[in-house]
Simulated scan of single mutants.
Amino acid sequence: MLRGVRRIERQVDDLVESLKLNKEKPPKKCPTGFISIDNWPSCYMFSSFDMSWYEAKDYCAAFDSDLVSLGTTREHFIVTYFIKNNKEYNDAAGWWTSGSFVSKTKQWMWTAQLFLKPFSFIKWAPGEPDEEAAQCMVVAGKDDHLWNDELCILRYNFVCEADARAL
């Protein structure tokens, strides 16, 4: 099992090296303040301050974006790699995503823009989700950037995601 984990870690390291993060001069397809990644369909803006989940969704909407939907394992590793390896961001307690528990369907879903999409993979921390009242998903710094459920009124940093192809 340990060999499998090491192999995955090497693959993630190789992937991140090949993506070449470009913060200084984003291409024209990303809004100002967003980070572009070569050959990747999304742009990201990492907050340097905290807000409730609702405020963070509104903030992202003001930039024609939404809270990040970590739709693939690859995207999860890209976003968390950037957080972990950026001194400005790696001390944050957590990062809001668009993940939310939808009572009507009784499942966790990405709630970005005008669609609801069930999680296609999960990266919950051990014992999570653990609270029925906690309806919003955060990438938790204390749990090595795995997912936790939290009350939506709590304040965390957040990641906005914009579709690079549409810009």
Score class of each variant (00 low, 15 high):
T111C: 08
H76A: 08
K87I: 11
T105F: 04
T73M: 15
T73Q: 14
K106Y: 04
Y156V: 08
I78A: 10
K25D: 10
T72A: 09
L151W: 11
A125T: 10
L116F: 08
L116H: 07
K25W: 04
T97P: 09
D143N: 13
D64Q: 15
V79Y: 04
R74A: 08
I35P: 00
E24H: 11
G141S: 05
E75W: 05
L67Q: 08
G99L: 14
M109E: 13
S120N: 13
P129Y: 04
G33R: 06
L146G: 07
S48F: 09
Y44V: 06
L21M: 13
S100M: 08
N86G: 09
L151A: 14
G71H: 05
E75S: 07
Y89P: 02
H145I: 05
E150N: 12
A61K: 15
V138A: 11
N157F: 14
F46E: 09
W53S: 14
A92T: 10
F63V: 02
D130W: 00
W53M: 00
F119R: 00
I122C: 02
Y54D: 13
A93T: 03
E75V: 09
Q107D: 07
Y156W: 13
Q135E: 07
I37H: 03
T73R: 14
E24T: 11
N39F: 05
F82M: 08
Q107F: 01
S65Q: 01
Y89C: 05
W124I: 06
R155C: 00
I83Q: 04
P31N: 03
K20A: 06
S120G: 12
N22V: 15
P129N: 00
W110P: 01
L116A: 03
N39T: 09
I153F: 14
P41F: 05
D66I: 03
I35G: 00
I122G: 06
N39W: 03
D144V: 02
F49S: 14
Y156D: 09
D91H: 06
W40I: 01
E24N: 11
W96T: 05
F115N: 10
I35D: 05
I78D: 03
S120Q: 12
F49K: 09
K57E: 14
T73G: 14
S48N: 13
A133P: 03
N86F: 02
L21F: 15
F63A: 13
K28M: 13
D91N: 14
K106Q: 05
L114S: 11
Y59P: 02
P126M: 08
A62V: 03
K23R: 13
D91A: 05
C30Q: 12
F101Q: 05
G71N: 12
C136W: 04
I122P: 00
P129K: 02
G127P: 04
G127I: 02
I83V: 13
D38E: 14
V68Y: 03
A112K: 02
L114V: 00
T105P: 03
A61Y: 09
S98P: 00
K20T: 04
T111I: 00
G141I: 01
S98R: 05
C152L: 07
V102N: 14
P126D: 09
W124P: 08
L67N: 05
E131P: 00
Y89I: 07
T105I: 00
Y44H: 11
K23N: 11
G141A: 04
K29C: 09
I83F: 08
T32F: 07
P41C: 00
G33T: 04
M45D: 10
P129I: 00
L21D: 07
S103Q: 10
K123S: 10
H145Q: 14
